[in-house]
């Protein structure tokens, strides 16, 4: 079976790479193909999600939630069925805003196994809860 493809991008210009790199490794170990584009603007994220024909978009968020919400809106508008999940230093009020848009959110302290489970669900590899 062709592996499911996940796009990973950072919405901000803050280059801490520890979190997304660890998550990408766990996803690859679980059989996913991960396309890392690093720090990207909303337009770049949308273009990459479509060009790379991915099954899931992962956003690493380290900045203001409005920047991330703009990226979420743009992806959902360009590809209404595209699932998105997010992780990073996201305070509780911002987690709530992302969840309201249908995202699964993984703040610091999340377990990699839970993130992989989420990727399996969101790409249809396991049943949705």
């Amino acid at each position: 079976m062709t592996p499911k493809r996940i796009l990973m991008a950072k919405t901000g210009l803050d280059g801490h790479w520890r979190g997304p790199t660890i998550v990408a490794r766990a996803l690859r170990d679980a059989g996913f193909e991960v396309i890392m584009i690093g720090m990207a603007t909303t337009a770049e994220i949308v273009a990459a999600a479509i060009d790379e024909d991915v099954d899931l978009v992962g956003l690493n968020i380290g900045g203001h939630i409005d920047v991330a919400l703009r990226a979420v809106d743009a992806v959902q508008s360009a590809a209404p069925d595209m699932p998105i999940f997010a992780g990073g230093t996201i305070p509780p009020h911002a987690c709530k805003q992302l969840e309201e848009k249908g995202l699964e959110v993984f703040p610091p302290g999340s377990m990699l196994t839970d993130i992989v489970d989420s990727a399996n669900r969101l790409t249809g590899l396991s049943e949705t809860q």
């Binding site: 919405t11 901000g12 210009l13 603007t41 909303t42 203001h64």
Partner: peptide
């Protein structure tokens, strides 16, 4: 342009 695309992030850190 890279900053304009993320104007709300400005001053956060």
């Amino acid at each position: 342009p890279e900053v304009l695309a993320r104007r709300e992030d400005v001053g956060l850190t």
